[in-house]
Amino acid sequence: MVAAVYTKDLLHQIAPNRVEAEKRIGDLLSDYRDIAREHCDVAKEHRDIVMEDIQTQEEERRRQEEENCHQLFRLTHHDRDVTYEWYKDRVEKRVENTCLWFLQHEHFQTWVRQDSGPLLVSADPGCGKSVLAKYLVDEVLPQSESTIWYFFFKDQDQNTVRQALCALLHQLFTQKPCLIKYAVKEYRKDGPGLTNSTKSLWQILQDATRDPQAESVIIVLDALDECKESELPDLIRYVESQFRSDQCGKLKYLLTCRPYEAIMSKFYNLKGVFPEIHIPGEEESEAISHEIDHVI
């Protein structure tokens, strides 16, 4: 009887302590969970900061790589100005009321309206082909919705296909930076030597102009007859091949040269597709002579 009463009293003493202990343990566990959650949040914050830093470094590395690749195509010389802009700007500006014979020509009007295709302009020496090309590049063609790239060949100086392609690509990536990806892919393989690989340069230009983001493009190549003789056939062959593909996009070429049969004959195969490909300035002697007299 006495033992039972003692046990009962002991249970009454233990029970409140157990409840309090369980409460304290619960409180401690809750505190630990809060601390663990805080540590987890801090860890996530640190992880996000590290990932952001890595992403920033990667974007900076990519941006620098693209910039290096872009500037690679701007060929310069340490002791003189040989940029493609300089060769264009050294050509005299047209005199007012000249070049009108060309702008009014039916073939030019047709070419302007079409989405793609080449236009070959031939004329005898001294008839102002380069003056016309500069006028078109600076004043006429920019009025269209197309982007304009150009290259003015100069005998024994700026006369290689490699120089022409580098100039065109530099203008392309200046106006359409998003397309630099096509050059970077080749740049990672060839490095600075990329500008010496004509095949790779052609491939970059072709891939970029086919990209929908390139939209409408007009390429002006002046004085094909001053291109290095050994390289000219490949240049004409490539231009022709672009228009034999179903994926040429909205690409147009305007080419000027002297009326040499060796050059003109290379474009005859395209006449079936583009019957108005040629504007023979040598047959417009009366109109051109009138403009020359006006200049004099």
Results as ranks from 00 to 15, higher is better:
residue 91 V to Q: 14
residue 225 D to V: 10
residue 129 K to D: 06
residue 96 E to F: 01
residue 4 A to P: 01
residue 132 L to K: 03
residue 13 Q to I: 02
residue 172 L to N: 00
residue 90 R to C: 10
residue 88 K to Y: 02
residue 275 P to E: 07
residue 149 W to D: 05
residue 176 K to Q: 09
residue 162 R to W: 01
residue 267 F to H: 04
residue 223 A to C: 07
residue 230 S to I: 06
residue 69 C to N: 06
residue 87 Y to V: 02
residue 224 L to T: 03
residue 135 Y to C: 10
residue 232 L to A: 03
residue 172 L to W: 00
residue 267 F to R: 04
residue 233 P to S: 09
residue 180 I to E: 01
residue 146 S to N: 10
residue 223 A to H: 11
residue 49 I to E: 13
residue 270 L to S: 04
residue 216 S to N: 13
residue 73 F to Q: 10
residue 32 Y to C: 08
residue 249 G to R: 04
residue 291 E to W: 03
residue 87 Y to G: 04
residue 222 D to I: 05
residue 184 V to E: 06
residue 160 T to H: 08
residue 97 N to V: 02
residue 251 L to G: 00
residue 5 V to N: 10
residue 191 G to H: 11
residue 69 C to F: 04
residue 165 L to N: 15
residue 294 H to I: 02
residue 180 I to C: 04
residue 26 G to M: 13
residue 55 Q to H: 11
residue 258 R to N: 12
residue 150 Y to F: 06
residue 228 K to L: 13
residue 50 V to Q: 07
residue 21 A to S: 11
residue 73 F to L: 14
residue 198 T to F: 01
residue 85 E to V: 03
residue 66 E to K: 15
residue 207 D to R: 04
residue 20 E to H: 06
residue 222 D to C: 05
residue 199 K to Y: 03
residue 198 T to M: 00
residue 67 E to Y: 12
residue 176 K to C: 01
residue 13 Q to H: 11
residue 162 R to T: 14
residue 73 F to H: 12
residue 280 P to N: 15
residue 125 P to D: 04
residue 136 L to I: 13
residue 81 D to G: 02
residue 237 R to E: 11
residue 294 H to T: 05
residue 191 G to L: 09
residue 262 A to T: 14
residue 196 N to T: 13
residue 282 E to I: 04
residue 114 Q to H: 08
residue 214 A to M: 12
residue 9 D to L: 10
residue 99 C to S: 03
residue 243 F to L: 01
residue 290 H to R: 15
residue 214 A to R: 03
residue 38 E to Q: 08
residue 127 C to G: 11
residue 110 T to H: 15
residue 279 I to V: 15
residue 255 L to S: 05
residue 235 L to C: 07
residue 234 D to C: 06
residue 57 Q to W: 05
residue 275 P to N: 15
residue 52 E to N: 12
residue 239 V to D: 00
residue 41 D to V: 07
residue 178 C to R: 14
residue 83 T to V: 06
residue 184 V to A: 08
residue 38 E to R: 13
residue 44 K to N: 08
residue 208 A to H: 01
residue 223 A to T: 07
residue 127 C to F: 13
residue 211 D to R: 00
residue 215 E to S: 11
residue 32 Y to R: 10
residue 60 E to R: 13
residue 76 T to N: 13
residue 42 V to H: 13
residue 215 E to T: 07
residue 16 P to K: 12
residue 291 E to C: 01
residue 142 P to D: 04
residue 148 I to H: 06
residue 189 K to Y: 11
residue 69 C to L: 02
residue 185 K to G: 00
residue 155 D to P: 00
residue 27 D to F: 12
residue 202 W to T: 04
